[in-house]
Amino acid sequence: MNLWPFVFALFTLGIFCLLTRRNLVKILIGLELLSKGATLALIWSGILRNSLAYTQSLAVIVIAIEVMVVAIFLALVYAFHEKSSSLDTDDMRRLKG
Protein backbone atom coordinates (compact mmCIF):
# COMPACT_ATOMS: atom_id res chain seq x y z
CA MET A 1 0.00 0.00 0.00
CA ASN A 2 1.57 3.21 -1.11
CA LEU A 3 -0.01 6.59 -0.83
CA TRP A 4 2.98 8.62 -1.97
CA PRO A 5 1.78 9.01 -5.56
CA PHE A 6 -1.42 10.57 -4.29
CA VAL A 7 0.49 13.00 -2.16
CA PHE A 8 2.70 13.83 -5.07
CA ALA A 9 -0.31 14.35 -7.32
CA LEU A 10 -1.95 16.67 -4.84
CA PHE A 11 1.23 18.70 -4.54
CA THR A 12 1.51 18.97 -8.29
CA LEU A 13 -2.06 20.09 -8.69
CA GLY A 14 -1.63 22.66 -5.98
CA ILE A 15 1.54 24.14 -7.45
CA PHE A 16 0.06 24.14 -10.91
CA CYS A 17 -2.97 26.01 -9.72
CA LEU A 18 -0.81 28.43 -7.73
CA LEU A 19 1.38 29.34 -10.64
CA THR A 20 -1.00 29.46 -13.56
CA ARG A 21 -4.28 30.90 -12.39
CA ARG A 22 -4.95 34.58 -12.44
CA ASN A 23 -7.84 34.85 -10.06
CA LEU A 24 -6.95 35.39 -6.43
CA VAL A 25 -9.47 32.84 -5.17
CA LYS A 26 -8.00 30.24 -7.48
CA ILE A 27 -4.65 30.92 -5.85
CA LEU A 28 -6.29 30.24 -2.54
CA ILE A 29 -7.53 26.92 -3.83
CA GLY A 30 -4.04 26.05 -4.90
CA LEU A 31 -2.74 26.82 -1.41
CA GLU A 32 -5.45 24.69 0.08
CA LEU A 33 -4.61 21.74 -2.08
CA LEU A 34 -1.00 22.01 -0.98
CA SER A 35 -2.03 22.01 2.66
CA LYS A 36 -4.20 18.99 2.23
CA GLY A 37 -1.44 17.17 0.50
CA ALA A 38 0.83 17.98 3.42
CA THR A 39 -1.69 16.69 5.94
CA LEU A 40 -2.12 13.48 3.99
CA ALA A 41 1.62 13.02 3.87
CA LEU A 42 1.79 13.52 7.62
CA ILE A 43 -0.81 10.91 8.37
CA TRP A 44 0.69 8.41 5.94
CA SER A 45 4.12 8.78 7.49
CA GLY A 46 2.52 8.28 10.87
CA ILE A 47 1.13 5.01 9.68
CA LEU A 48 4.46 3.95 8.31
CA ARG A 49 6.12 4.63 11.65
CA ASN A 50 3.28 3.39 13.73
CA SER A 51 3.01 6.57 15.75
CA LEU A 52 -0.45 7.72 14.75
CA ALA A 53 -1.23 9.46 18.02
CA TYR A 54 1.76 11.75 17.63
CA THR A 55 1.16 12.36 13.98
CA GLN A 56 -2.47 13.12 14.41
CA SER A 57 -1.72 15.81 16.89
CA LEU A 58 0.64 17.34 14.39
CA ALA A 59 -2.01 17.08 11.71
CA VAL A 60 -4.49 18.83 13.94
CA ILE A 61 -2.10 21.70 14.39
CA VAL A 62 -1.50 21.94 10.66
CA ILE A 63 -5.21 22.02 10.02
CA ALA A 64 -5.65 24.82 12.47
CA ILE A 65 -2.94 26.83 10.79
CA GLU A 66 -4.50 26.14 7.44
CA VAL A 67 -7.67 27.73 8.70
CA MET A 68 -5.83 30.82 9.77
CA VAL A 69 -4.18 31.14 6.39
CA VAL A 70 -7.48 30.88 4.62
CA ALA A 71 -9.05 33.44 6.89
CA ILE A 72 -6.35 35.98 6.29
CA PHE A 73 -6.33 35.31 2.58
CA LEU A 74 -10.03 35.88 2.33
CA ALA A 75 -9.73 39.07 4.30
CA LEU A 76 -7.05 40.12 1.84
CA VAL A 77 -9.33 39.31 -1.07
CA TYR A 78 -12.06 41.34 0.49
CA ALA A 79 -9.81 44.33 1.15
CA PHE A 80 -8.38 44.18 -2.33
CA HIS A 81 -11.76 44.11 -3.86
CA GLU A 82 -12.75 47.15 -1.85
CA LYS A 83 -9.81 49.07 -3.31
CA SER A 84 -9.90 48.11 -6.96
CA SER A 85 -13.00 46.00 -7.74
CA SER A 86 -11.10 43.32 -9.52
CA LEU A 87 -9.55 40.07 -8.47
CA ASP A 88 -7.17 39.73 -11.32
CA THR A 89 -3.54 39.45 -10.29
CA ASP A 90 -2.41 41.16 -13.46
CA ASP A 91 -3.85 44.37 -12.10
CA MET A 92 -1.91 44.09 -8.85
CA ARG A 93 1.45 45.50 -9.78
CA ARG A 94 1.94 48.27 -7.29
CA LEU A 95 4.77 46.45 -5.52
CA LYS A 96 7.00 46.66 -8.55
CA GLY A 97 10.49 47.69 -7.50
Binding site: V25, L28, E32, K36, T39, I43, W44, G46, I47, L52, T55, Q56, S57, A59, V60, I63, A64, E66, V67, V70, A71, L74, V77, Y78, H81, L87
Partner: peptide, 29 residues
Protein backbone atom coordinates in the same frame (compact mmCIF):
# COMPACT_ATOMS: atom_id res chain seq x y z
CA UNK B 1 -6.49 5.27 7.71
CA UNK B 2 -7.45 4.99 11.32
CA UNK B 3 -6.97 8.61 12.25
CA UNK B 4 -10.41 9.58 13.41
CA UNK B 5 -9.19 12.68 15.23
CA UNK B 6 -7.61 14.15 12.15
CA UNK B 7 -10.60 13.12 10.15
CA UNK B 8 -13.03 14.87 12.46
CA UNK B 9 -10.97 18.05 12.41
CA UNK B 10 -10.59 18.00 8.67
CA UNK B 11 -14.27 17.54 8.11
CA UNK B 12 -15.36 20.27 10.43
CA UNK B 13 -12.74 22.71 9.29
CA UNK B 14 -12.31 21.99 5.62
CA UNK B 15 -15.76 21.09 4.59
CA UNK B 16 -17.39 23.38 7.06
CA UNK B 17 -15.49 26.47 8.16
CA UNK B 18 -13.45 27.10 5.06
CA UNK B 19 -16.29 26.53 2.67
CA UNK B 20 -18.57 28.82 4.59
CA UNK B 21 -15.98 31.57 4.77
CA UNK B 22 -15.13 31.28 1.10
CA UNK B 23 -18.69 31.34 -0.06
CA UNK B 24 -19.37 34.30 2.16
CA UNK B 25 -16.45 36.24 0.74
CA UNK B 26 -17.35 35.39 -2.80
CA UNK B 27 -20.83 36.61 -2.27
CA UNK B 28 -19.42 39.90 -1.05
CA UNK B 29 -17.02 40.13 -3.92
Amino acid sequence: LNSPVAGAFELSVGAGLITVLAVLTISFV
